[in-house]
Design a protein around this nucleic acid. Structure first.
Length: 259
DNA sequence: ATGGTAGCCTTGCTA
């Protein structure tokens, strides 16, 4: 079972890229972030044409997450509990072929001296609470998405320049490590120890051309999912296309249940 | 050299 995540930065602009990638990579599930459209504006029919069900938590202009799955999803859950006043669409979760899959768009958190950073850390606490519930259920679970956290300096092209940024701050990294310490596995790092492998390259200053990026998109696996982990990697190709998103897909494959 | 790009619509904000 192949599960992928991709921050597409507008599904309307990126639909041709998404369709092409689905056709070539054929994931069983693709988690999308920053779709930047209302749920009713999502191109559900175009994706159905490729054989994918779309489960969407949209939002006009900003944020928005979705789950594209070959099989119909079950037990869809939208949002994280813990803050009824939170109106940002950043979390959707469903069961696909027995695997609990979440599409996550974690807040960026910049500038750090503002309530945006406070919101990010509070959101990570709420995610942690949900992660603990999933662990208690002892089910295969994959928390996939744009975490807006570069876990270590090796995940950043210029760690010194980024030291004070919300993506690299010690508080952000500690909250990310708490997920690992609780029992979740970073799928990519299971197979790739080499530094300077990225999932995001800023549009500005020719970062892509110089391979100056950050690894901020992650697939975190519960023990029951990690026990089935076969492979994981970053697919850089979509970032090199015309009109590309600033992020590129990350994927992992799980052995079939009972295999 | 204190910039640069992209996408949204709020022609500034978010990233």
């Amino acid at each position: 079972m192949k599960i992928a995540t991709w921050n597409v930065n507008s599904i309307k602009v990126r639909l041709p890229h998404v369709l092409a990638w689905l056709e070539s990579a054929r994931p069983d599930a693709l988690c999308l972030q920053e779709i930047k459209c209302a749920t009713e504006e999502f191109p559900t029919l175009e994706l159905k044409g490729l054989g994918y069900h779309a489960t969407v938590s949209g939002q006009k202009s900003y944020n928005g997450v979705a789950l594209l799955t070959k099989d119909p999803p079950q037990d869809v859950r939208v949002g994280l509990s813990g803050d009824p006043s939170d109106t940002q669409s950043r979390y959707i979760e469903a069961t696909v072929r027995g695997v609990r899959i979440a599409s996550i768009y974690l807040p960026n958190g910049n500038p750090v001296e503002t309530d945006k950073f406070t919101y990010k850390l509070a959101w990570m606490e709420r995610l942690m609470a949900r992660a603990r519930e999933l662990l208690a259920g002892e089910v295969p679970a994959v928390l996939a998405g744009d975490y807006n956290v570069a876990p270590q300096d090796a995940d950043v092209y210029d760690p010194v320049a980024w030291r004070g940024d919300a993506l690299c701050r010690p508080e952000s990294r500690r909250a990310f490590r708490a997920l690992l310490n609780a029992g979740f596995t970073d799928a990519f790092r299971t197979f790739h120890a080499e530094p300077h492998r990225y999932t995001f390259w800023d549009y500005q200053a020719g970062r892509w051309g110089r391979d100056e990026g950050l690894r901020i998109d992650h697939l975190l696996l519960s023990p029951q999912a990690a026990d089935r982990l076969i492979a994981a990697d970053i697919d850089k190709a979509p970032r090199g296309r015309d009109k590309a998103s600033d992020h590129t897909p990350v994927w992992c494959t799980l052995a079939e249940a009972g295999a």
